[in-house]
């Protein structure tokens, strides 16, 4: 039993971390009323920047390279997401369409520059990815230690901490209250002197930053290089986590952990007696089927923020 947990829980945390970061980005954006189908593209951008920066500056920063890389990826993706913000907030573009365009654009730019700089469709493997560590002291605790604190990535714990910070920001600060107000009833918020456009810009840029962070963590823990197939659906899975988690940061974290769990089962499942005979495909489609069921109201109702997807036009009713 302990052995099973020891193989499942670290892999769950390992697969969940990028999903948690990105899903938190989705929560910020959608809570402010901007649909973000572009999470996938923001992750692609994060993965691309994270890998390229890591390759280029591994000699300069040494063991700190992965940390600097994810920081740079976060910033670049935040800037990249401004495109989505401008299109969907200022230019009143259809937010779904703009998100689709973000996905195309990120992949196009990433692979174009990869070919331009490396002369082939994928980058080399990075020399300084994240490595697993044992948390000092905690990993020596019997039973719990080996399961939760041995051979894990620090980024996994950062993701969980980030979820709690996001919850605090959204629900315990006036900034969070304003952000949610803008997503529920922008006209009322505007009347109360909240700058709707500014709040939405901030929210979308935050989603870009977190999406980029998620993408770069994914690239630097799981794949270690960049190509057109580095990010395949993780962004959409994060979007699913946002909805499955009912647009709540902790809910999204829980959903992301659950999706990570399903993924880890599809990887290590063959070693677990009960799951031996379950075809892998069921574990692969589980996150998506569950999201549909959640939306259909079979697993509690999931209600989107009221003004989600509606551009705010000053003076219109």
């Amino acid at each position: 039993m302990i052995e099973i947990l020891q193989s499942v829980i670290p892999t769950t945390l390992f697969f969940s971390a990028p999903l948690i970061f990105t899903a938190l980005g989705g929560v910020f954006s959608e809570r402010s009323g901007v649909v973000n189908i572009g999470l996938e593209g923001l992750m692609v951008m994060g993965a691309f920047v994270g890998i390229v920066f890591n390759l280029a500056f591994a000699d300069v920063f040494g063991v700190w390279t992965p940390w600097v890389s994810i920081a740079v990826a976060t910033i670049v993706s935040a800037i990249f997401s401004v495109i989505h913000a401008v299109a969907s907030i200022s230019f009143r573009a259809d937010q779904v369409v703009s998100g689709v365009a973000i996905n195309f654009l990120a992949l196009g730019i990433g692979v174009y520059l990869t070919k331009q700089w490396y002369g082939k469709g994928q980058t080399d493997m990075v020399s300084q990815p994240f490595f697993t560590t044992n948390v000092p002291f905690l990993s020596d605790i019997p039973f719990i230690g080996p399961i939760f604190f041995k051979g894990i990535y620090v980024t996994s714990y950062l993701a969980i901490i980030a979820a709690f910070i996001a919850w605090y920001v959204l629900y315990k600060t006036s900034f969070g209250l304003r952000l949610r107000a803008v997503g529920e009833h922008p006209m009322a918020a505007d009347t109360n002197g909240i700058n709707v456009y500014k709040m939405r810009y901030i929210a979308v840029i935050l989603s870009g930053a977190l999406g980029g962070l998620g993408g770069s963590v994914f690239a630097l823990t799981i794949v270690s290089n960049f190509s057109h197939s580095t990010i395949v659906g993780q962004g959409f899975m994060s979007l699913a986590a946002v909805i499955f988690g009912k647009w709540h940061p902790l809910g999204a974290m829980g959903a992301a952990l659950f999706f990570g769990f399903a993924q880890s089962l599809s990887v290590v499942g063959s070693g677990i007696p009960i799951l031996e005979n379950v075809p892998q495909v069921f574990l692969l489609i589980a996150p998506y089927v569950l999201t549909i069921l959640a939306l259909a109201g079979f697993i509690g109702r999931a209600d989107a923020p009221k003004a989600n997807g509606v551009p705010y036009i000053k003076g219109s009713r």
Partner: peptide, 22 residues
């Protein structure tokens, strides 16, 4: 020129059509 240039062009065309308001 890498083929992905066309993907970038298509993405930009989508942006421009979607932002037709401007």
């Amino acid at each position: 020129v890498p083929t992905e240039l066309v993907d970038i062009i298509i993405a930009l065309i989508i942006f421009f059509v979607a932002s037709s308001y401007i």
